[in-house]
Structures are given as C-alpha cells and as structure tokens.
Amino acid sequence: MTDLKKEWPLFEVFIRSKHGVSHVHAGSVHAADSTMAMENARDVYTRRSEGSSIWVIPSSEITASAPSAKAALFEPSDDKVYRHPTFYEVPDDLEVL
C-alpha cells in the first residue's frame, strides 16, 4: 500500500540571473528527483527571464550554521579593524594610493 502522505523531497533552488554574477537562493521546490527539481525550479522561479543558470540541491544536504553560533563565528572579526583600509592613516593630499 502506498503511503498517501509521502510528499516529494524538498530541494533548494539557486539562480544565476546572468553570467558574471553568483547564484542566489530563490526558494525551494518539491520534486521526486533532481531532474524534476530542475524542471520545477525553471517553471516556478524563471518565468520572466530571471535566470541563465539554475542549481538545485536536496534541502537535507545543506549544512547551515546555527543561529546560536553567530557570536562564536562572527564576533572575532569585529575587533580586527586593521583588516579594513580605513584603519590606516595616510596624508590626505597624497594623489595616488
């Protein structure tokens, strides 16, 4: 007996709008497999020439950082202002630098 409740797996969709820019997350689609996910992503997210390339990946395959890890991951860079060019003082009247 088939499980009537069994829904197709979820895929995340990333679209490159044109060559020269990165793929950007657009949303998700359900599909039986990656071929169908590609077709569905095309129909759902690129009806108005929004894409020149599509990536689909099963949502379950994505490893995401936890919101609780935000401080541990990103705060260490907050006090490293010397990584930015504005940290350095150079004469204003310098014509080239």
Partner: peptide, 25 residues
Amino acid sequence: AKVQDEAGHGLYLYSAAETLGVTRD
C-alpha cells in the same frame, strides 16, 4: 500566463511557510 503566475505565487508562499517547520502535506 496569469493563472500560471497564481500557481507560482502559491508555491513561493508554501516554500516560505515550510521554512517555519510546517510540511506541504
């Protein structure tokens, strides 16, 4: 094209709702 868009809108929205932990089913 318009009716197809409505289907698309439904799917964008289901996709947004699913991020909150509810399933499509």
